[in-house]
Every structure is written in C-alpha cells, then in structure tokens.
C-alpha cells in the first residue's frame, strides 16, 4: 500500500487525482488550549477502506465531526469528490454522500426503527417514501433489525442501537461511510457478522473510514491504517506494518494484542 504524501495531491494543473474521495488538508480544531485535531492531512481513495486507531481522547471522533460538519475547523479544508465542503452544513454534506454513525448512539427514539431509516432515505437521497421502502427493508434485513422494524427506537438495547446507527447511515445511500466504534461490546460471533456486513458494503462500492479499538476487526476489513495521538497523525500505511511500528506498540501496550 502506498503512503499518501502531499505530492500525490497536486497533479499537473492543480487538479487533484480523480480517484480521490476525501481530501483533508492541514485540518485543525482546538477546544480552548486543547489541540484535539492538529494539522492533519489525509487522503482517502474512492472505494478504499481506511482504519483509524489511537488512544482515548486522541481526536478521532473530533476528526469525524470535522468531516461531517458537526464541528467547524479552526483551520484547513475538507474536500469530498474534489468539491470544497469546508463551509457546508452537516445536512448538505449528508446529501453530498457522507454518512456517519455516532459513537454514542443518537436514535430518533420516538420514531420506529423503520422510520429512523426513512428519514435519511427521504432527505439525504431526496426520494419518496414508497420508492425507498424496499431499499430500507433490505438494510433492516442485513443489519438484523427487521424483527424490530415497527418498534420505537427508544425501546432498543444498546447493541440494537449500534446496529441502528449503521442501518440509518446506510439508508442515506452514502458514498463515504464514517463508522465510529461500532464493534465495541459485541460478542465474538456478533463481531464476525459485523465484519461480514461491512465487507459487503465495501464490496458494493462504498468508501469506508472506520474508527475502532477492536483492532482485529479493523484489520479484517481495512486496506490502510492511520494512527492518531494528541490530535496528530503519527503513523500511516499498510495495517500490519503500522500495528508493528514502535509508536503504535507504545500506545497500545495493554489495550489489544
């Protein structure tokens, strides 16, 4: 796997590579004196699967929030499909093809599970309810939520809420899917199922960026890995190589084999 340095970004004529889905340049975000994301450069190729690891508080979720527009960066740019979206609102980015799951699930509790999916399918895709019913049903099937389709999302267990986060994100029909720790708390069997699901989504052409502490799940899917620590990207490249590097071993001592 290649290392993506800045030299790759500036193709002749100033145009970026057409294979690039997401391009982040010198992105920074501070909370008071805390530099949560510190001058991060990152390029994700179309149809790639990128993993992000790093200790608690490293700025991983904050990076997602900057990509989705939930937070505004202090400096830097975000491009999706070569379009500068740094100033775009979260809903505009969603309609442009970015979907995310929240680390702490944020279901629409008084809507049913099916209706949770409908919101995104209707608004992000701009489709009518009856046109995307089958599409939503298929996602419910795939994420093992069909049984709960008509239950209020507020009645779901934590595991089901995590599945709903994924299902709702998929219902928006994303080009770029951002997953924030969706494997936490799963049994080994459930984890394998999740890996299979994400592989299928990836195989169908969706670009994936996945934050995960369960490293073996991550390594089963991603083709490239980056490591964040104190808001900075301290390593990136081929997953096995990155995991064996000295920086990562130091950080991950005792977290995961």
């Amino acid at each position: 796997m290649l290392l993506y340095g800045p030299h790759m970004l500036d193709a002749p004529g100033g145009r970026s590579d057409f294979r690039v889905m997401l391009e982040i340049r010198q992105l920074s975000k501070s909370f008071g004196s805390l530099r949560a994301v510190d001058n991060v450069d990152l390029v994700v190729e179309r149809r790639a699967a990128l993993g992000i690891v790093g200790p608690n508080g490293a700025g991983k979720s904050t990076l997602f929030n900057l990509i989705t527009g939930d937070l505004r960066p202090d400096a830097g740019t975000v491009r999706l499909d070569h379009r500068d979206i740094t100033a775009a609102t979260p809903y505009e980015r969603s309609r442009a093809g970015i979907a995310r799951t929240y680390q702490v699930p944020q279901p629409f509790e008084n809507l049913t599970v099916f209706e949770n999916l409908l919101v995104g399918a209707v608004y992000a895709q701009g489709r009518r309810e009856h046109e995307i019913t089958d599409f939503c049903a298929e996602i419910l099937e795939r994420t093992h939520l069909m049984r709960r389709a008509d239950s209020p999302a507020g009645s779901l267990t934590l595991l089901e809420r995590k599945r709903l986060e994924l299902a709702r994100a998929l219902a928006t029909g994303p080009k770029l899917l951002l997953l924030d720790e969706i494997a936490g708390g799963l049994t080994e069997g459930e984890c394998q199922e999740l890996i299979e699901t994400i592989r299928l989504i990836h195989a169908a052409g969706t670009t994936i960026v996945w934050i995960e502490h369960i490293v073996h799940a991550l390594l089963a899917v991603v083709g490239r890995l980056i490591v964040l620590d104190f808001g900075r990207m301290i390593a990136q490249g081929e997953p096995q190589v990155v995991m064996r590097s000295a920086e990562v071993r130091e950080i991950y001592m005792g977290i995961e084999a």
């Binding site: 609102t89 979260p90 929240y102």
Partner: peptide, 13 residues
Amino acid sequence: RDSELAAESVGVD
C-alpha cells in the same frame, strides 16, 4: 425533536 444533531447528519435541514 429527538436529535437535531442526528437529523442533520441524515440530510434534514
């Protein structure tokens, strides 16, 4: 009403 944050994240203005 249930989560403005999540609503925006799925395309609701």
